[in-house]
Design a protein around this nucleic acid. Sequence first.
DNA 1: CTGTTAGCGCCTTCAT
DNA 2: ATGAAGGCGCTAACAG
Lengths: 347, 347
Amino acid sequence: MADETVSAALTLKDIAREAGVSLATVDRVLHNRPGVRPETVRRVQETIARNSFQPHVAAAELARGRARRFAFVMPSGPNPFMQQIEAYLGEMSAWLSARRLSVEMVTTDVFDPSVLAASLETLSGDYDGVAVVALDHPGVRAAINDLVEAGTKVVTLVSDVPSSRRHHYVGIDNIAAGRTAGALVGRLVGQKAGKVAIVAGSQGLRDHAERIFGFNQVMASEFPDLSVLPVLEGRDEDARSEQLLARLLGTHTDIVGLYNVGAGTQGVASALSGAGREKHVVFVGHDVTALTRRLLLQGLMDAAISQNPGHEARAAVRVLLALARGEPILSEQDKIRIDIVMRDNLP
Amino acid sequence: MADETVSAALTLKDIAREAGVSLATVDRVLHNRPGVRPETVRRVQETIARNSFQPHVAAAELARGRARRFAFVMPSGPNPFMQQIEAYLGEMSAWLSARRLSVEMVTTDVFDPSVLAASLETLSGDYDGVAVVALDHPGVRAAINDLVEAGTKVVTLVSDVPSSRRHHYVGIDNIAAGRTAGALVGRLVGQKAGKVAIVAGSQGLRDHAERIFGFNQVMASEFPDLSVLPVLEGRDEDARSEQLLARLLGTHTDIVGLYNVGAGTQGVASALSGAGREKHVVFVGHDVTALTRRLLLQGLMDAAISQNPGHEARAAVRVLLALARGEPILSEQDKIRIDIVMRDNLP
DNA sequence: CTGTTAGCGCCTTCAT
DNA sequence: ATGAAGGCGCTAACAG
């Protein structure tokens, strides 16, 4: 009961005393609230900086009282990736409620810009933060900006809208993912020359467009013996993807590589095996579902680039929380790694 | 000012009232503290469960008062991976102090079991949690168990000691990493038959041993045309690795693949180019340093499997904190992804 | 074995 | 423009 040399962390009160003001004033300065003389602001800020004072987040959280509400705006319809995000948010429920956070799922037609924009407008005022899987479109951009304007923290998820004023993007680097796919297709094809097919959902989807861009970059610069055919747009539907690819495989008998940018994997696989070309085409895709898993094990698919829905859900929540608290975003907090899955390292 | 239908989250007080006991008793039950009649325990637990009550972490944190102290026990000497972990902990310092957490670095000779064990024993009682890059050895195992016994939370980092009573392992799945390396070497070699060399630091290092195990699994089952040569142990030193590999390349002129399991990358690369075999050998390694980057760009190295020091540091801190608080570990909290880096997707 | 009580550090009215 | 005071939900003495 002597050794009090261990300096306990400073508190607001210490700063207040040292700056010769009251608790309330320090709090005002800390949060840039109005009603403090510039001179006082300076003095307090100086004291805070000099002591490198960090307010105790737990105390702040407790004192606020109110819970924080977040919304996840996701595509309606049966998308396994989105379902996993939702499932993971469920796993987090105890974690969330222990922090007095709530997250609600809002499903909408994210492929129709006006519907998506309308959904976003609906949310204004009701939530502290919104994570949205968005289409990059002027109407959506405007809706996002309105939310930001209203003080809601906005994070784009999976697919970015960089021209909007969203606070943050959580998801993989899609250009890097496309480049990775290109490198895999090129290297796994080996010395052979021939054509390469690309099946995407739509080039209007920014994530798809970016992946294709990266893929083409690598093809052009590293694999001159491979020529890339025009992109097929299968709208992420199996039937359409299969039909388009089947026709292409019929026309071009020298296709040696195939990049499936989005969903519709079943259709793509069917076209490939339907044409009997599965042994001669290197097939690289994206999602890792039970289907992909089977295709990899069968050797029909050669590699899949995957995101991790759990990581993305978690990162989105963390980033929204940090933004709501006014904390800086740590560089590693939201970096989503690109995973390559092959037959031999299936998780 | 009417709509009070929004059910505010329950508090200890609510549970106490509903169970007909006092705050203190609920708290005792919540933390399995002794001194409560079994019958009462049951009743309180039942009330907690029925309301799925979650104590507010922020309030708990605030009421505890004392800060938490963590230690990272890391290898001494210039290891870039470890330096990055340390750098990242520096980046987190504001985050840490806002939560009244402190983490201290303790460097020691992790390759000498008795020194490492002694270092660990030193820590007992001083820390709430310890993250350790450990050698899997009986003495170390005992030291870890003593720490656990003393109530310290222990997390193994990068390399596990599964037979100890450590609470958690944070790091990549090294067997999966080895399998991935095997799949890459096998696929990138293509149709050629030949031999494959492995250079490791030491098979006594558990992470290295596990990677080699995974690598051999895939080689044996998937690539019968490739035969794996006995493992070279370069002790993670450039000179020794170079010397051993140079001799091997001299003896076996039909080496078509090379797996570098640990460090010593410079030596391995030198041996390869010194023998003029760089164009004919598929070279897959692990760390991603500036050197690896250059080797990849030069095409001397074909792929590198990487961990992310920032992710690992962050995960270790989060897991230690969760353990110290008695929270469950979320499945995604500590899963470290394996990253594959090639020339075309260098970060 | 159980209850009472005084804070933890900050935020938020409400006065001045 | 600034200060005083109460309370957020929990923990930890201390009383009984």
